[in-house]
Write a protein that binds this DNA or RNA. Structure first.
Length: 115
DNA sequence: ATTCTGACGTGGG
DNA sequence: CCCCACGCCAGAA
């Protein structure tokens, strides 16, 4: 648990930096961490984060802006409700104006030097 | 130990 | 435009 000072921990750090009403993609986070081709692990980390820390997993979607992991949130449309609650327009598990809500780690955090 | 799957992404046909 | 396969790594059967 506390030994998750690896890829998982990195993912949590980045995801936790996502501001309110913002979203990012698994691939973006993965690439930011240097594992551009391990986007799957990001999603896997989210699943683990469920029992570790308060990681806003609902702010992490696939590159299409589709709420692929909404099924893992417990409820059926809980993820969508959370996003809409933050001002994000979500229709049929699909984020509208994704380009407007997309949060780029490089743009906000800069280079992954602290990681 | 082996096999498959998985909250993805990209590329090829 | 749609379908399929590969890569990546970790965990479960």
């Amino acid at each position: 648990m506390e030994d998750s000072n690896n890829f998982f921990s990195k993912v949590y750090v980045v995801v936790k930096q996502i501001p309110y009403g913002r979203v990012t993609s698994y691939g973006a986070v993965a690439k930011y961490l240097g594992a551009a081709r391990s986007a799957r692990m990001v999603g896997w980390a989210m699943n683990a984060s469920h029992s570790i820390e308060d990681v806003p997993a609902h702010r992490v979607v696939n590159k299409q802006g589709l709420l692929t992991g909404k099924h893992h949130f417990g409820g059926t449309n809980l993820m969508q409700q959370l996003l809409e609650s933050e001002g994000v327009v979500v229709i049929d598990n699909q984020i509208q104006n994704l380009d407007m809500y997309l949060w780029d780690p490089w743009k906000e955090l800069g280079t992954p030097q602290d990681l």
